[in-house]
Amino acid sequence: MSIGTFIIVSIVKILLAVFILLTAVAYVVLLERKVVAHMQNRWGPTRVGPFGIWQPLADGLKFIFKEDLTPPYVNKPLYMLAPIIAVTTALTSIAVIPVGPWIKLGSISTPLQITDVNIGLLVILGVTSVGVYGVALAGWSSNSKYSMLGGLRASAQMISYEVALGLSLIGVLIYTGSFSLSDIVNQQTGTWFGFIPKWNIFQGQIVAFFIYIMAAYAETNRIPFDLPEAETELVAGYHTEYSSMKFAMFFMAEYANMVTVACLASVLFLGGWTGPVFGPPLVQSLLPVFWFALRVFIFMFIYIWVRGTLPRFRYDQLMAFGWKFLLPLAIANIVVTALVVAVK
């Protein structure tokens, strides 16, 4: 492939990925409102289009037309910078996630991910660890006690759970021997006895999977770990002073991070795009993407389900859970996995 086609293919893939991610973010918000509403015996949005399916567009328009307030006495440059950091890092980490195997279009063959780097997992961890600054700086620069407390809570919580999150992935890495996400998926193809898929979750990584999920919920500030924006104590936490599109950027970043977490969970533990493939060539090349999207959808549903079910932790419980339970469990998982691999 020449350098020209490479650049064109990359740009097309980037535009597609950002478009799909933002659409997914908009519709996850709708899904959340609908599902939580039905769990609470309400209808949720119904007015804009059938079943309220145009609600995300209406929300977007509303955000754009709202007055963009900048409160006095904020630290202006950082106040502007914070939502930019949050949304940029949230959208960047999708770049290394593979949604399908290689496809061929005429003479061009390309992987269904923006770029396949052999440190893919580390890129995601690095980008998300920089994303903490968006939240921390938003809390600090707003010059408000609620924002400040929210920002402090968020940064402490995110660096604490990042440790458990990172360690929970090591078991998978020991099995695969590669940081490349497409290698990790390729290693999970095939079945045992013809029906049990060789996903990492069935290869003894089930404990790691649950550690990952819990740490990821904390990383994305979702219930039951949404202390940084606990509305009963902190109004809205770190984004209290933000309005209009700047608030919408934090909102988008939170949901984009949820989608990334779901993608990563399906790649690392649930076999990524693997699944039965049949039919004519076009269907064959699109089915893996469908299986991947299905996994991500189920994950988002569980996210919303948990949100509609569980109460919020107390802050000391949150810290104790992260450091005294999840971290030792993750380390034990690494030791056991390493022993099993060594014995094999």
Partner: peptide, 8 residues
Amino acid sequence: VLFVFVIM
């Protein structure tokens, strides 16, 4: 992040 945290 720890530096920023302490400053905050």
